[in-house]
Design a protein around this nucleic acid. Structure first.
Length: 592
RNA sequence: GGCCCGGUAGUUCAGUUGGUUAGAACGCUAGCCUGUCACGCUAGAGGUCAGGGGUCCGAGCCCCCUCCGGGUCGCCA
């Protein structure tokens, strides 16, 4: 039976006490990390969110209290009063290692069964068990550190944007479904039989309307929902720092956000981030890194061998060039030892996942040079390729050719990252920010047989490309930008269309009939008639920002109660079935 | 939807060519111990080898199916 807390009032957190407090009487609360019974002497490590404090019981301790301390087991919840004194021997490993509490009052305010795993830092326990008992997992110091740091990051965002004139405004969570983009989570309506709300993928339209309403600068730290498959950095519900600015263009958005990043890294990590960030147009990012979110912490950039390959005699290369594709390569410096033939076979299998038909390679090392393709091309041709790549003895050249240049970029971009990881050449302590700009406005969808908006349908085309919206959509660039950190898309945004006529042209280019555009976005189009300021905005993935700042491998480590790969939550077992009665009220029948 | 990896005491793992009673460490329980701090010492308990089916004289190990977890491609305006 647990004891009452009546009359007990905490004076200090465990971790904030030090030798300065020697002689003071303190009251502390927390969980028993460990009890060490030495016979006539008992120590209990008391843990709260700030750290660990040793409670000491000896022959000066009241017999009843001593016996109570004897009965304490791991994870018992304790409230203790006593006097801070210097320890007989210092423990240099913990912050409070110089002191202990000579306990004069001890209450067991919560007993505990032995937990399914130990509550310790760097737990080796498998993730599904951690997630099933997430409330215990969250007691571990590293998870506490992550969640508390996340709080500071969020607070920093609120403070920073408040200081820059941004107004926090809440937008609805039950909204109209818009089939463009990610799959919506749907919520059936009870009152309107057969109708559904959707949970927002982002507050996009609402924040734009708030600009029309004159709030000028908006921010919201907001949950968003996408019913798509999960990844290490993708959850079905995730948090965005969402913002929008009136009378603003790309430069103002980038500037204010660089300022935020600078501040949050300084305040939370004590690190100085250099601003302004490098800006890299999308086409250039593809050309150099084969990615629209390049990791610039290492080189190994892509090199275009199309011209040299056009008449090299190797059918795989010449065929790709003849069909309008390209031949590109990367050079892994000093990789001869590590990238063995066996490793290259694995990498060849790896690039096939990205649509590449194969991987051509050369391991350069004087007499010991070996190559998968050199025997098919004239010696001077191969030499010219190596020279263009800057490849010398000891290096490994990897080449991908395809009739579709996008496949070459995708495969080689992924290969660049994979090879860098295998070679362990990515510096872990660097934070490399950049903006990727001038994204294509449209992307052709083979599945849909039409152009789709690459960012979203409200994105402003580049001024020089305005006349291409109808005539050459594929070549049309957008006033859209992504903030990229270490190969992760941290956030993105754009200048929005604020002219209804241009917006109509966009909808038409996307294959919307005027009726469909009216039905889907009529309220927005209508609003734009009444005076829309130029506006632009951006949204960050807060979870990703936290993950990268805290050095985590997955956003699950910075989310208190995340979902697993099949989008269920292991602790509470959601989703789950519901009563027949609930279904009836919602006019839903389950078929199977 | 595809591909890859994994599932053996509470936990993390080992488990030989398919061969007796499935082991270790930590944790847990009990006893001893006055300066520990990953306390120490002694003893003990603890197993549906993810589930189902198959091959075999015999399966933790081989085969098939299912479930669960992770990574990834597709997908993610």
């Amino acid at each position: 039976m647990s004891e009452s807390l009546r009359g007990f009032s905490r004076t200090n957190y465990c971790g904030e006490l030090s030798a300065k407090n020697i002689g003071e009487e303190v009251s502390v609360c927390g969980w028993a990390q460990r009890q060490r019974d030495l016979g006539g002497l008992i120590f209990i490590d008391l843990r709260d969110r700030t750290g660990i404090l040793q409670l000491a019981f000896d022959d000066n301790t009241d017999k009843n209290i001593f016996d109570k301390a004897f009965s304490v087991r791991a994870e018992y919840v304790l409230a203790a009063k006593g006097v801070i004194r210097r320890r007989a021997s210092v423990n240099g490993k913990i912050a409070t290692g110089e002191i202990e509490v000579a306990v004069t009052e001890l209450r067991i305010v919560g007993e505990a069964e032995t937990p399914p795993f130990e509550i310790v830092e760097n737990s080796p326990v498998k993730e599904d068990l951690r997630l099933k008992y997430r409330y215990l997992d969250l007691r571990r110091p590293d998870m506490q550190k992550n969640i508390l740091a996340r709080h500071r990051i969020v607070k920093c965002a609120r403070d920073y944007f408040d200081n820059h004139g941004f107004v926090e405004i809440e937008t609805p969570m039950l909204i109209k479904s818009t089939p463009e983009g990610a799959r919506d989570y749907l919520v059936p309506s009870r009152i309107h039989a057969g109708k559904f709300y959707a949970l927002p993928q982002s507050p996009q339209l609402y924040k734009q309307l708030l600009m029309l309403s004159g709030f000028d600068r908006y921010i919201q730290i907001v949950r968003c929902f996408r019913d798509e498959d999960l990844r290490a950095d993708r959850q079905p519900e995730f948090t965005q720092i969402d913002l929008e600015m009136s009378f603003a263009d790309e430069d103002s958005v980038m500037q204010v956000n660089e300022g935020f990043v600078k501040k949050v890294f300084k305040d939370v990590l004590g690190l100085d981030v250099k601003t302004p960030f490098m800006r890299l147009p999308y086409a250039k990012a593809m050309e150099l890194y084969g990615s629209d979110k390049p990791d610039t912490r290492f080189e190994m950039t892509l090199c275009d061998l199309t011209d040299l390959a056009a008449d090299c005699g190797f059918k795989v290369f010449t065929g790709a060039v003849a069909a309008g594709g390209s031949v590109r390569a990367i050079c892994a410096k000093n990789a001869f030892e590590k990238l063995t033939r066996k490793e290259l076979d694995k990498l060849a299998a790896f690039v096939k996942d990205y649509g590449a038909k194969g991987l051509a390679w050369t391991r350069l090392n004087g007499e010991n040079t070996s190559s998968s393709f050199a025997k098919f091309v004239p010696e001077e041709k191969a030499a010219a390729m190596y020279q263009k790549l800057g490849a010398v003895d000891g290096d490994v050249v990897m080449i991908i050719a395809d009739e579709d240049s996008q496949v070459v970029f995708d495969a080689l971009g992924a290969l660049r990252l994979e090879a860098a990881q295998r070679l362990a050449i990515i510096p872990e302590d660097k934070f490399n920010f950049l903006w990727v700009t001038e994204f294509p406005l449209f992307e052709y969808s083979k599945e849909e047989g039409r152009y789709m908006a690459k960012h979203h349908p409200f994105t402003m085309p580049a001024e020089e490309d305005l006349d291409k919206v109808e005539s050459d959509p594929g070549a049309c660039r957008a006033k859209a930008y992504d903030m990229v950190l270490n190969g992760v898309e941290l956030g993105g945004g754009s200048v929005r269309i604020n002219d209804p006529k241009l917006q109509n042209r966009m909808f038409a280019a996307l294959g919307f009939t005027p009726e469909k555009a009216q039905e889907q976005f009529g309220f927005l189009m209508n609003a734009y008639k009444y005076g829309a300021p130029p506006h632009a905005g951006m949204a960050y993935g807060l979870d990703r920002l936290c993950m990268l700042m805290l050095g985590c491998e997955s956003i699950r480590d910075v989310i208190a109660f995340p979902k697993v790969q099949n989008a269920s939550e292991l602790m509470s077992s959601s989703p789950n079935t519901v009563d027949e009665k609930q279904l009836n009220e919602l006019h839903i029948t389950i078929s199977d």
